[in-house]
């Protein structure tokens, strides 16, 4: 007699990670009927689905980014059931409103991490390990060369860089992604050094997050802002402004950039900023390993990053690990190296 092959709880399909039993997708990269979203970054939260379910703090972020669509917000740890499958969101510590997605059916538990970090950043709900059988993990920085310093020491470097620039009346242009990185930087800036100005894209996302996070005051740069107004102060902006006409209008300024890739000398030199800060919203090598251990899982599926190397290492360490292709590729070294 032929045994009917049981399909996996989560499958990797052309549209995204799919739960056939519940007929929902996790972070799909094509439009679907029902999408469960881990966090607000563009490669995970895409436009075109009919119904979005996400953590409640991520709803205003999605609204700001994708427009007025059908959203449903859930609190962390608050389970909901779709066709017998139990789902819940758990803090991923990546950016505000970011979640790991726990999926349980008939006693089998899978966790999809989206993106995560184990260090606390002062603005996101800290990462919480979730027990599971199968752990689908990102591994953007899944190489042993990535070892993050304590964030406090990086923020100290940033403030002393700003203070030094300020002393010579040089404006500090500090760059980082608009959602998450910029606010994390902002949260730890020392307003006693000077005023904090923002680029429009940074300000927009910061305003959204001000609904539930306390930040130092910011002032949006407009057409009326003069070089004199910002001299010696700090400007927060997305990385794309580097070398743009917008940046030229800032007058004499020093550039700073915060990213995990700045650990690489090659990437630092290519970026050619005056000061590179190694600060990432992803887990480093030890962070990934400790997160995996804490789940007590047997199976690991590595998705974006150094997937093959990381899976090979995990297999040698006794896990049952494999890789799956996804389209979550926003923060790769390739994007860092070749950018149009």
């Amino acid at each position: 007699m032929k045994k009917k092959r049981k399909s996996a709880l989560l499958e990797f399909t052309a549209k995204g990670i799919y739960c056939a039993q519940a007929k929902v997708y996790l972070d799909p990269w094509r439009g679907v009927d029902k999408a469960i979203i881990s966090h607000g970054h563009a490669d995970h939260a895409r436009w075109g689905s009919k119904h979005y379910i996400t953590q409640e703090h991520n709803v205003p972020i999605l609204q700001a980014r994708l427009g007025d669509l059908h959203y449903e917000g859930k609190a962390y740890g608050d389970p909901f059931t779709i066709n017998g499958v139990k789902f819940s969101f758990h803090p991923a510590g990546h950016v505000p409103g970011s979640s790991q997605i726990r999926v349980e059916y008939k006693g089998e538990v899978w966790v999809f991490t989206g993106d995560y970090k184990v260090q606390e950043d002062g603005i996101s709900t800290p990462f919480e390990p979730v027990r599971c059988h199968t752990f689908i993990t990102e591994c953007t920085f899944g190489l042993p060369v990535f070892q993050w310093a304590p964030p406090a020491s990086v923020h100290e470097q940033i403030n002393s860089w700003w203070a030094k620039n300020s002393a010579t009346k040089t404006t500090s242009l500090l760059m980082g992604y608009s959602l998450g990185k910029a606010q994390r930087l902002l949260k730890h800036l020392d307003p006693s050094i000077g005023k904090i100005f923002t680029h429009g894209a940074t300000e927009k996302m910061t305003q959204v997050l001000r609904q539930y996070i306390d930040f130092p005051a910011t002032e949006l740069i407009t057409r009326e802002t003069t070089k004199k107004d910002i001299e010696g102060h700090l400007v927060l902006a997305p990385p794309a402004v580097m070398g743009s006409s917008w940046a030229k209008k800032l007058g004499q300024h020093a550039t700073g950039y915060a990213s995990g890739w700045m650990a690489f000398r090659g990437a630092r030199r290519r970026r050619a900023v005056d000061k590179a800060f190694v600060l990432s919203d992803h887990a480093d090598w030890q962070g990934l390993l400790s997160a995996i251990k804490a789940t007590g899982c047997e199976n690991v599926i590595t998705t974006h990053g150094y997937t093959e190397l990381f899976a090979q290492y995990l297999n040698e360490q006794g896990w049952n690990a494999r890789t799956e292709k996804t389209q979550y590729e926003a923060e790769t070294l390739e994007a860092e190296v070749v950018e149009s």
């Binding site: 190489l143 042993p144 090659g266």
Partner: peptide, 14 residues
């Protein structure tokens, strides 16, 4: 493991 060291080296490039 030596292979992981070597792979790291190839990726870092130096």
């Amino acid at each position: 493991p030596p292979w992981l060291f070597e792979e790291s080296y190839h990726i870092v490039g130096d």
